[in-house]
Amino acid sequence: MNPPKAVCFENVSAEYRGIKDKNPKIFDGLDLNIHKGEKVALIGSNGAGKSTLLKLICGFIKPYGGRIYVCGEEITSKKPEETAKYVSLVYQNPEEMFIGESVGDDIEYAMRERKIPDYKSKALELIEMFSLKGLENKDARLLSGGQMRRASLAIGIALNPSVLLLDEPTANLDIATRTEVIEALNSICSKTETAIVATHDMQLVAEWADRVIVLHEGRIAADGTCTEIFEDEFVLEKVGIMPPEIYTLGKRLFGAQTLNPKEFADLFLREREEVLAI
């Protein structure tokens, strides 16, 4: 039996209001199931509809046809205030998430509004977890890019959502901050059940995801594990995706599937020992 569904799309169609007479259709009869506990990476070229898909799941935009279920509840006609019990969206642009007076206030905000007991101590925990200590009284807009991103992650999981949606969490970050954010992501994923990340960062996909969904022109072009997708040259060609370099390198040198530097290094050392033994 399949594990219970976290997100389920049934024949969903969505469009935006167009500037010219015709409304651009983004999805036309899309079906999709995401099960509890999955770590899903959503990839695809610019304009493929990744952000739109995330916005549909959290009820930011409503489909004009079909149904969307989150954690077994139909959310198609629900208010965002209600869907927020199950889903949380961390925007592509963290600045748009800052509505409080300071970082600390922002992290507390949702818990305070929803009268969650002990919200102060929970907020402190989050501040600790995302290494925002000492910044909690600053205006969030004045933080550095990486700090803003961490603050937005903290805000995103404050309500303990069962489904966490992240839109390009590693975009525009330097390497050190990127590593920090990926670490934060990993620690988040031990707290939430299901996470869906829209991203262009193949390294992140390789290191983090256990299921990859490739969107292309509003359709699901491929769906599988990292290695399945990276091996599918037809899809890669069509959608224009490059596997991470460490993967290509591992494949060229050893014909193996190495998803991160550690796997590659282990393999490399083993191979070298074998060569030396001869």
Partner: peptide
């Protein structure tokens, strides 16, 4: 567009 996003932030975190 930004206003829309901010308003949505309030809604996601607020309570009716």
């Amino acid at each position: 567009e930004q206003f829309q996003n901010i308003l949505f932030s309030y809604r996601l975190r607020g309570r009716v």
